[in-house]
Design a protein around this nucleic acid. Sequence first.
DNA 1: GTTTGAATCAAACGATCGTTTGAGAATACG
DNA 2: CGTATTCTCAAACGATCGTTTGATTCAAAC
Lengths: 220, 220
Amino acid sequence: MTSAPYASRERSTKERILGAAEALFATHGFAGASLRQVTAAARVNLAAVNYHFGSKDKLIEEVFRRRLDELNTRRLAALAKVAGQEDTSLEDVLDAYIRPALDLSRNDGGAAAFVRVLARAYAEHNETLRKFLSENYGHVLRQFAGEFARLLPGLAKDEIYWRLDIVTGALTYAMADFGIIQRKSDVDERDHRETAAEHLIRFAAAGLRNPSVSTSTATR
Amino acid sequence: MTSAPYASRERSTKERILGAAEALFATHGFAGASLRQVTAAARVNLAAVNYHFGSKDKLIEEVFRRRLDELNTRRLAALAKVAGQEDTSLEDVLDAYIRPALDLSRNDGGAAAFVRVLARAYAEHNETLRKFLSENYGHVLRQFAGEFARLLPGLAKDEIYWRLDIVTGALTYAMADFGIIQRKSDVDERDHRETAAEHLIRFAAAGLRNPSVSTSTATR
DNA sequence: GTTTGAATCAAACGATCGTTTGAGAATACG
DNA sequence: CGTATTCTCAAACGATCGTTTGATTCAAAC
């Protein structure tokens, strides 16, 4: 076997590190969470991170790759179900874009932390991470833009990307649960996110349907 | 006098520290930017931070307070010009909410960094900072919500706050210039932000005007 | 049973962090 | 002027950071 000899534990050392890192990066940031905190939370030796991942930066990359691949797949699968069909509504495509992102934080307790990690990555404004995201998401975004263009024939390509950018902003914000609106203690988190998704989809649909205005020079 | 004896310099030590800290916090985060970087950029001795501000945390608070007070004032002033009047449009109120935030980054080179700092503060998800922001912005948000309620009589109060939250998310995202769409090199940053403001306002107006739906069972 | 290689561990490495110190320079005030 | 106060500065403090080392433990290969 190529797998770890120590695999008798519930989860492998690598997975425990990834999980702990995800949670701690979400709450303390990449620079704020130390490898000592991470390894302690994972009940793993300090040296394990450098042994399994090489460095802290590589660990951060792995945290991203693991979840992004999943989100990538889910979004494209959801889009494939509605793309190109005659009775597809704008809300259906928005749902395919928004729901997998919000779902990611419901199905898995660990993934809930990741959405905050993702939002933080945007805030970090790190050029390396930005490039990494753009390379891994460029084709996804392009596919969605194409489908939106089909459903909104009145809008220019530039305009579509502008509006998709706004939707992504609101989605990122919602995923990270940044909102001013505090979830009431008697409301389940699932329900809260479901409500957030519904509001977001309806709001975004209205914004996207808005007829285009001749804007002198389209910049972005 | 209570002012600094060394005041013969172009700007005081405190102000130079604040400016440098703002810029470095924006690019490297609060934990990522060290006081040695900050003091070096400000051409100031390392000990000056603890002498003038007490600690790094207090410095962070000061960076926030300085700009937030200004944004606070501008937003309320802009709102006062249109609130309660007969011919006020939804776009006018949105403009009062959105433009001061985006303007902050155009009038002053230093303030441009702050909008990223602000966005990062949301991402940090720090409970202390969140409380600080909510205490300093609660009344502003309430005033805007009241005006929106007047212009959108068909919407419940809860619904208003939900949608304002979405607008804030997209605005935060836009302020930080997170967008996937890169600004073309031949486009001035002022024009870029102006275009961003226009898109955001029109998008948000459409989303806000969207008639309310009985929330019970929604989407899909 | 011996060998082999992967995985874990305690301990230490040098670097950098935020903060403190104490002496000295610059200004204010009598 | 002399004294007091404010500010600056180089240097060092202890703590913590990411990383490396070398010995040890474990499971499988032969």
